[in-house]
Design a protein around this nucleic acid. Structure first.
Length: 579
RNA sequence: CGGGACGUAGCUCAGCCCGGUAGAGCACUUGCUUUGGGAGCAAGACGUCGCAGGUUCAAAUCCUGUCGUCCCGACCA
């Protein structure tokens, strides 16, 4: 391809609505253009990268036994009602009406469609395992699209769904996909690593997210370098808070004392009270699926809502309003406690960090008063103990007892053992060897294709622009003649090299624009081609061609060896990425 | 949905406080010069100042509303 024939609108300056580096580079390198918030047009260079990532995904999934299908993006709401997600996924569902005022759903994912298919078509254990996948545009009614392709209203996703006759079979399918994902991201040149993920209301222990470390990511990953433990902070556990609780009881009974105007943990730590946050009990009132519950944490801990949902099985949780607090406990937030005045029907969930705690301070359910000398196990009616707190950096890992670290990351993939949640609801059953009907055991597996593209940029760039791994680069080589005067040595040599490389199957872009060398150099570095070949009068006169890998120093080779050296370089880089 | 900021040329932005002929740089067109790291000179084209009302002799500028964008938060199947 010739530069003048394609369309690469590069920009010197970043549009002001781009915040993070990968978003700026997407625009500056002419890969995409914004139509409106969360909706982007892929231009030729961006589309080529996208297709390459898709191709890597296809190859690896096919190798892992996946079979490609294509499901409708437009879906009837009935199947969403059947699975129950018409309600639970309400906030992200795009709905449209046709001319007859009939409602349709634009699919954010396809569990319902594929399970509907399986229900009709899979009747025997002999038809399994099956693993269907597709690469398709998804729609999600994001409240706040941001960061370019990272979080968009419309995005391309690879989604796969496995069907097995047995739990062991489902685990094997899961493992195959986990391994395939590892290879896919490695081939894309991405340093992505799997972390344990929250399984939400479905439960179970089999969910991993593939994370790309990046400060601009929207996830916090907790990890231990010694044991290799890594988990999404929604799921992560530790050996508990670092600060130990006081060992000795400070009094035999809870004692009420006045705390006028004190409504925060922090205010109680100040004079004249001087109660450290770790000696306070934080009493949170939540509404879990319309049920009012209390959650008690140590004052210096934060509630982890994902854990709350996982432990209670609630589909939706939210903090209670001040009015709901008053009607339940008789006091406003800031003076709440569970020592007295808790209605018998209200569930009291207590974080395990409070186990054995004595000499604690908590609200008295009376505005302006707190209790001191509280012993949780003695003075509070505990419905259930569990882990509800958010892990903090430096706490010790459960397995190795070493300090945990936390870092930001971009989620690019997710593997999830679903079990029979959807197959039961949508009646996807089969006849097993034992002559009985069983629900299929399912797994689902997603890769954000457009997000992966941007994650590569986020990870592979420098001050000059993008630096594509050769496996996903829009073109592997950019030939840059410094003069395009017809008949001049640079352009004739360039044409010859272009023909040789193309014949060898190398993807080459020939920068045939009538631009000054500086412009061509800057543009090729901005767009990020892995290898550039400079053809200038001076070096050609010496019988040499300059080869400039994007990330390595330039070197010169004799003209007649140039094609072979370029081909070698590209093949070597490709081989490295292919593992 | 709450809090904040911003909408002026294709892009980045100034002008707005204090109302009076709509600006700069980059990009674009033409010519000349230049030709190994985002060139120089000259000429040129490009705008209902987001939109709608209002105040005023007069509104990019002041007021009200509205739409859009971005940031923080809430949300994230």
């Amino acid at each position: 391809m010739r530069w003048s024939q394609t369309f690469i609108p590069t920009l010197k300056e970043s549009p002001s609505d781009a915040e993070i580096i990968s978003h700026k580079l997407l625009l500056r390198a002419g890969l995409v253009r914004k139509l409106t918030g969360g909706l982007y047009t892929f231009l030729p260079m961006g589309l080529r990268v996208l297709r390459k990532i898709e191709q890597i995904i296809r190859e690896e999934l096919n190798r892992a036994g996946g079979i490609e299908v294509l499901m409708p993006a437009l879906q009837p709401p009935e199947i969403w009602q059947q699975s129950g997600r018409y309600e639970t996924a309400r906030d992200v569902l795009f709905k449209v009406k046709d001319s007859a005022q009939r409602e349709w759903v634009l699919g954010p994912t396809h569990e319902e469609v594929i399970t509907h298919l399986a229900a009709a078509e899979i009747n025997s254990y002999r038809q399994m395992p099956k693993n269907f996948y597709q690469i398709q545009t998804k729609f999600r009614d994001e409240i706040r699209p941001r960061f370019g392709l990272m979080r968009a209203k419309e995005f391309i996703m690879k989604d796969a769904y496995s069907f097995d006759a047995t739990d062991e079979g489902a685990m094997a399918s899961y493992r195959r996909m986990y391994d395939a994902y590892t290879r896919i991201f490695a081939r894309c040149g991405l340093k992505a690593f799997p972390v344990e993920a929250d399984t939400g209301v479905i439960g179970g222990n089999y969910s991993h997210e593939f994370m790309v470390p990046a400060e601009t990511g929207e996830n916090d990953v907790v990890y231990c370098e010694t044991s290799g433990y890594a988990a999404n902070i929604e799921k992560a556990t530790s050996r508990g808070p670092l600060l130990a609780l006081p060992a000795a009881s400070t009094g035999s009974v809870p004692e009420k004392f006045p705390t006028p105007g004190v409504v925060t943990i922090e205010a109680l730590t100040a004079d004249p009270y001087g109660v450290e946050a770790s000696r306070q009990i934080k009493t949170l009132v939540y509404v879990a699926d319309s049920q009012v519950i209390l959650v008690l944490l140590r004052g210096d801990d934060q509630l982890n809502e994902s854990k709350l949902m996982a432990r209670t099985g609630a589909v939706q949780v939210r903090p209670a309003t001040p009015e709901e607090c008053v009607s339940t406990l008789g006091a406003r937030p800031g003076s709440l406690g569970a020592v007295s005045g808790v209605p018998a029907k209200v569930t009291v969930l207590v974080d395990e960090a409070l186990k054995g705690s004595v000499g604690m301070v908590t609200g008295a359910n009376e505005d302006g008063f707190h209790f001191r000398h509280v012993e949780v196990e003695r003075d509070i009616r505990v419905t259930r103990w569990a882990d509800f707190r958010t892990v903090r950096v430096g706490e010790l890992s459960v397995s190795a007892g070493q300090p945990l670290k936390i870092r930001r990351a971009i989620e690019v993939g997710h593997v999830f053992k679903l079990g029979t949640k959807y197959s039961e609801k949508m009646n996807a059953t089969f006849l097993a060897e034992d002559g009985q009907r069983h629900p299929c055991v399912m797994g689902c597996y997603g890769i954000g294709v457009t997000r992966t593209l941007q994650a590569v940029i986020e990870q592979c760039h420098d001050d000059f622009g993008i630096s594509w791994p050769v496996s996903v680069a829009p073109y592997q080589v950019c030939i840059t003649p410094l003069s395009i005067m017809p008949g001049s040595l640079p352009i004739t040599t360039a044409e010859k090299l272009y023909a040789e490389l193309s014949a060898a199957g190398i993807e080459v872009l020939l920068d045939d624009r009538d631009e000054r060398p500086g412009v061509k150099f800057k543009d090729s570095e901005l767009v990020g081609f892995p290898l550039r070949v400079n053809l200038g009068e001076k070096s050609l006169a010496k019988g040499e061609i300059e080869i400039k890998p994007r990330n390595e120093p330039m070197f010169s080779v004799p003209i007649d060896q140039a094609a072979a050296r370029v081909i070698d370089w590209v093949r070597q880089q490709s081989a490295t990425l292919a593992g």
